[in-house]
Design a protein around this nucleic acid. Structure first.
Length: 561
RNA sequence: GUCCCCAUCGUCUAGCCAGGUCCAGGACAUCACCCUUUCAAGGUGAAGACACGGGUUCAAAUCCCGUUGGGGAUACCA
C-alpha cells in the first residue's frame, strides 16, 4: 500500500472568496434524537499537529463507537493565515492516519458560509445583545450569570458571572469590505447547523465553552455535550510546537560553531544549500541562506523552518517530529502513531496497550479518559513502531520499505535497483526480514543498510572501526582478511552466505581464535563499519561478487608499513 | 493578577466513582544477567510512585478541606 492514497477528494482544491456558496437555509436543530454527530474542525494555517490528530481520532472513534457520523469542517476565517496547501496537507494526513469522515468532498468551509453567520449576528443584534466597535467589529454581550455545564471527562464545571468578558463575534471589515466571524460565533453556528451532538476537544478550549454556551442560548440553539482532554506536551513539559525544530537546529548550530569558524561554516552552508537543492527536490528552498539570516537565526531573531532544515541536513541531525507529516517521513506507521496517541489520554484498562483504530472505534468511552495533561515520549512511540514493524506481514513490509518517503537521506538518490532487481528479488526478501527485527522505523532498513546500495567508493568508512579491527595487534585484521579471501572465493554463489558462515567458523577454529576475529574484519571490509546484520545474511544480500570485490578493494588500501 | 482545570514510578498509565483483596499492577526508558560473530531482537531479573498537611472512618492511593506544584484561558488566532 503506498503511503499516501490518491483518492479523488484529496485533489488540490482552491479556496476562493469570489465563489461563495449559495446561501443555505437556516435550519438548525436538524439532529436526530439519538444519532451521535462529532466533528473535527481544523484551521488550515499549518500542518496537522499530533495534538490535533489525537482530537480527530477521538472524535472519529466516538462517532464510530455509537454508529454516528463524523464530519470534517474547515475553519478558515483567518484569511491571512489560511492556505490551500495546509488544507490539502491536513486532509492527506487524516487519510494517512486511517481516519475517514462522512462528509468527504463536501466539507463546509467557513469562509464560504458568511450568510449563515450574518443571519445569526442579525438575530443577536435584534435581541440587543451586541455592540458595534468604532471600526465595525461586533461584540457580543455576555449574560451576567454563572455558567455551568457538564463536561464528560471532568464532570461539572462552573464559570462565575462576570468572569468572561464580552467578546468579538465578527471582525472588522477587510479591504474588500467583507466581514468574517470569529471562531466563537462560527463554531456555534456551524455545530448547530451540522447537528453536532458531541464536542470533543483539547483543554485549551475549556474556557471558551461558557462563551459558546452563552451564544447558543442567545440564538436558541441546542447545547452539545462537551468533553475536554488534557494537552500533549514535550518530554520536558514545554509546549510541542514547530519552534522546537528551530530550537533543535539552533542548538546544533551553536554547538557546531564552538568547534569551527562561524563565518566559514556559514559560507559552507550557503554552498551546501545550493548543491543540496539540485539533489533534493523536497529540500526547503523557501529561504535563500545568507550570512544575515543565518546569523539572525542563530541569535533567535527568526525561527525560519527552511533554515532549520538546511542546518539539520548539513549537520546530519534529526529535527524533532511535531506534525503528523514529520512522523510519516521519519518512518512511523500510522497504526503505531494512532495507537500511541490514543493512549495519551485514554486507555482500555486491563493492561491492554496494543490496539488498532478498529478496536478504538469499538471501545472508546469517556469514562476511561484521563483528565491530566501528558508528555509525548518518542521512545515509547518508537517501541510501538518497532513492534508494529515486526508484526507486519512480509508483503506489506516489503512494500512499505520500498515506498517509504524520506525526509532527507543522501543515499536515497542512488538507485536501489543496482542492488536488487526489484522488490521480488530474493535478496530483497532476506534484506527485509533481516531488518524487520532491528528496525524502529521504516527508514532504518535503508539508512542502516545503506552500504548495500552504494558502490565501494561511496561507502562511509569509519576510521576508528578500521583502526580497531584492522590495524590493531600488528594488523591482525588485514591478515584475517587475507586468509578469508581465498576461502570465500571457492564458495558457490548459490547459498553463499550460509556456506561462508560455515567456512569462517571452521577457519576460526583452525586458527584458534574467536569468530569475531574474522567476522569483524570482513564487516569492516564490506560495509566500512563494525555493525551489520548477521554475517551470513549480510553476505547473502550483498552477493558473492560484490563481497569479494570489496574485500579486494579494501586489501588494496592496506597500509604498506 | 483573575478565572478554570489537573496531581500514582523518570514517562504513559491501572487502581479511585461503589474505602479493606494495593507494603500499589502493566508498558516505555534505565540497570544487571542469559543468548550471541558485531548491532539489534529475544529471555530472565532488579531498581523505581500514591505531592504535602489536616480531617472522616475500625480501615484512605481511593471520600472531604487546605497547602504546594503544574497546565490552560484572559486576541478582530483558532
Amino acid at each position: 500500500m503506498p503511503p499516501f492514497s490518491s483518492r479523488p477528494h484529496l485533489q488540490v482544491r482552491v479556496i476562493r472568496d469570489d465563489v461563495l456558496c449559495a446561501p443555505r437555509p437556516l435550519h438548525y436543530n436538524r439532529r436526530m434524537a439519538d444519532t451521535v454527530i462529532t466533528r473535527f474542525a481544523p484551521s488550515p494555517t499549518g500542518a496537522l499537529h499530533v495534538g490535533g490528530a489525537r482530537t480527530a481520532l477521538f472524535n472519529w472513534a466516538y462517532a464510530r463507537r455509537h454508529g454516528g457520523k463524523f464530519f470534517l469542517r474547515i475553519e478558515d476565517t483567518d484569511r491571512a493565515r489560511s492556505t490551500e496547501a495546509a488544507e490539502e496537507g491536513i486532509l492527506r494526513d487524516l487519510d494517512w492516519l486511517g481516519i475517514d469522515w462522512d462528509n468527504q468532498g463536501k466539507e463546509p468551509r467557513q469562509s464560504q458560509r458568511l450568510d449563515l453567520y450574518n443571519a445569526a449576528i442579525e438575530k443577536l443584534r435584534a435581541a440587543g445583545l451586541t455592540t458595534t466597535e468604532e471600526n465595525g467589529a461586533v461584540r457580543f454581550t455576555m449574560p451576567n450569570r454563572d455558567i455551568t455545564f457538564e463536561d464528560k471527562v471532568r464532570d461539572e464545571v462552573t464559570f462565575p458571572a462576570g468572569q468572561i468578558e464580552d467578546f468579538i463575534i465578527q471582525k472588522a471589515p477587510d479591504r474588500e469590505g467583507k466581514q468574517y466571524p470569529t471562531y466563537h460565533l462560527a463554531v456555534v453556528v456551524d455545530d448547530a447547523e451540522m447537528g453536532v451532538t458531541h464536542v470533543l476537544r483539547g483543554q485549551e478550549h475549556l474556557n471558551n465553552t461558557p462563551k459558546h454556551i452563552a451564544l447558543q442560548e442567545a440564538l436558541g440553539l441546542p447545547r452539545p455535550t462537551y468533553a475536554h482532554f488534557g494537552l500533549i506536551f514535550n518530554p520536558d513539559g514545554s509546549k510541542m510546537s514547530k519552534r522546537d525544530k528551530a530550537k533543535a537546529a539552533r542548538a546544533a548550530a551553536l554547538e557546531h560553531t564552538t568547534t569551527c569558524d562561524q563565518q566559514q561554516w556559514f559560507d559552507a552552508l550557503i554552498q551546501f544549500q545550493k548543491q543540496a537543492t539540485s539533489l533534493y527536490p523536497d529540500l526547503p528552498t523557501g529561504t535563500q541562506l545568507t550570512y544575515d539570516n543565518l546569523e539572525s537565526f542563530c541569535n533567535k531573531q527568526n525561527d525560519d523552518l527552511s533554515i532549520a532544515k538546511s542546518i539539520a541536513l548539513n549537520l546530519k541531525i534529526e529535527l524533532p517530529e511535531i506534525d503528523v507529516k514529520d512522523f510519516t517521513l521519519s518512518g512511523y506507521l500510522s497504526t503505531a502513531l494512532c495507537n500511541y496517541l490514543a493512549l495519551l489520554g485514554w486507555n482500555p484498562g486491563n493492561d491492554v496497550e496494543k490496539f488498532d483504530n478498529n478496536f478504538l472505534a469499538q471501545n472508546f468511552s469517556f469514562d476511561r479518559c484521563n483528565k491530566g495533561d501528558s508528555r509525548f515520549d518518542r521512545d515509547k512511540l518508537a517501541s510501538f513502531n518497532a513492534d508494529a514493524i515486526k508484526a507486519m506481514n512480509s508483503n506489506t513490509l516489503y512494500q512499505m520499505i520500498w515506498n517509504q518517503p524520506y525526509n532527507h537521506n543522501f543515499f536515497l538518490h542512488k538507485d536501489p535497483n543496482k542492488t536488487f532487481g526489484s522488490a521480488d528479488d530474493p535478496k530483497f526478501t532476506t534484506f527485509c526480514e533481516t531488518y524487520r527485527e532491528r528496525s524502529k522505523t521504516l527508514c532504518d532498513p535503508l539508512t542502516q543498510g545503506a552500504f548495500f546500495f552504494v558502490g565501494y567508493d561511496e561507502i562511509q568508512i569509519d576510521d576508528k572501526a578500521r583502526k580497531k579491527v584492522m590495524d590493531k595487534n600488528e594488523g591482525e585484521g588485514w591478515k584475517a582478511l587475507e586468509a578469508l579471501k581465498p576461502v570465500l572465493e571457492q564458495l558457490p554463489e548459490d547459498g553463499f552466505g550460509a556456506a561462508a558462515h560455515e567456512k569462517i567458523k571452521a577457519l576460526a577454529e583452525r586458527m584458534g581464535v574467536g569468530m569475531g576475529k574474522l567476522a569483524q574484519p570482513l564487516r569492516v571490509a564490506i560495509s566500512g563499519n563494525t555493525v551489520t546484520p548477521p554475517i551470513d545474511a549480510t553476505l547473502d544480500i550483498l552477493g558473492k561478487d560484490k563481497t569479494l570485490a570489496r574485500i579486494q578493494q579494501t586489501l588494496d588500501e592496506k597500509p604498506t608499513c
